[in-house]
């Protein structure tokens, strides 16, 4: 029983990171119809920024986090302006390919910056645990879950109540009509990317937290946000949260139990599980749990 609860909590923690990344994907996808393959690179650069602020600039972690988010937001907006704005009006597939290019460019930069050592983000949780009876929960997992849910609440309120949040949604729903309301559509694209950058940095701050550290290749972790948003629905914010958490928990449970129950599936099976879930979802419900089914215009 303790093992089960502990495993679920680890999954919720990791799943929150997928959810933050998924949220970045979803915002850019909704706002600009582009699948943003640069998101993993934004995350790893964000992780580096947090690490740089804490260790090189000597800023406390909780100040480094917003600073890194701000810097990554500016980076996101700059990428949109330089690399993606010229693609407006081109097929979205071409724009998605541009983001692949941006991914490799940023990853190269990140690799240079991070170097060969494993870096740390200087988070305050480390390997500390919270003991509830016999259940040992890592504090970092609780922090990931709390901050992840908080991020969703803040983003949700932003889209519902703020002027620019409403304008991003209007742009997503009908660009011409948004223009007719006086919305500067290009600026909304930039804002979507800025949000994606900030969320990337937030996820990045946690990727190396809990005593594990990160290296350039840790960027690949962010790819698991893809199964998460496909499960939740590419255009659903709620879906990103639930998809992220579900994928995190499934992954964690299979790590805990699969070696005992089904050892014949081989080692590291948990690494594959998110993608298996993704394939199954694509086969039976391609628009995900909360996504909008593709509307046939006849």
């Amino acid at each position: 029983m303790e093992a089960l609860i502990e495993s679920i909590m680890r999954g919720l923690g990791q799943g929150s990171v997928y959810a933050m990344l998924g949220l970045g994907f979803v915002i850019v996808y909704k706002g600009t119809e582009v699948v943003n393959f640069a998101q993993p690179a934004l995350m790893i650069l964000g992780a580096f920024l947090v690490s740089w602020f804490t260790f090189d600039a000597g800023v406390p972690f909780f100040a480094a986090l917003p600073l890194a988010m701000l810097a990554a937001a500016l980076l996101g907006a700059a990428i949109e302006r330089i690399a993606l704005r010229p693609m407006v009006g081109q097929p979205v597939f071409s724009a998605a390919m541009v983001t692949v290019g941006v991914f490799f460019a940023l990853l190269t930069v990140a690799t240079r910056l991070i170097g060969t050592d494993i870096r740390r983000t200087g988070d305050p949780w480390g390997l500390d645990v919270l003991l509830i009876g016999d259940v040992r929960l890592f504090q970092v997992d609780i922090a990931k879950l709390v901050i992840g849910v908080l991020a969703f609440l803040v983003v949700g309120a932003y889209f519902k109540y703020s002027r620019s949040g409403l304008a991003i949604r209007a742009t997503a729903s009908d660009q011409e009509t948004a223009l007719a309301q006086g919305v500067k559509v290009g600026r909304m694209f930039g804002l979507s990317w800025a949000l994606a950058g900030a969320l990337g940095a937030l996820a990045g701050a946690f990727i190396g937290a809990g005593g594990v550290g990160f290296e350039p290749i840790s960027a690949l972790v962010a790819l698991k946000a893809l199964p998460a948003i496909i499960l939740g629905g590419l255009d659903s914010i709620k879906g990103a949260l639930i998809g992220g958490l579900v994928i995190g928990v499934i992954e964690s449970l299979s790590r805990t139990y699969q070696p005992g129950i089904a050892p014949w599936l081989g080692a590291n099976f948990d690494q594959v599980v998110p993608y298996l879930v993704m394939l199954i979802v694509l086969m039976i419900r391609p628009y995900g749990l909360f996504g909008t089914p593709e509307i046939e215009r006849v």
Binding site: R163, L166, A167, R169, A170, S173, D174, E176, T177, A178, A180, Q181, G182, V183
Partner: peptide, 19 residues
């Protein structure tokens, strides 16, 4: 008409006041 069908009525009016 081109209203934002997924917005509430309130939100449709508020976006009209964007500027």
């Amino acid at each position: 008409r081109r209203i934002f069908v997924d917005f509430t009525i309130d939100e449709n009016l508020r976006i009209g006041a964007h500027t």
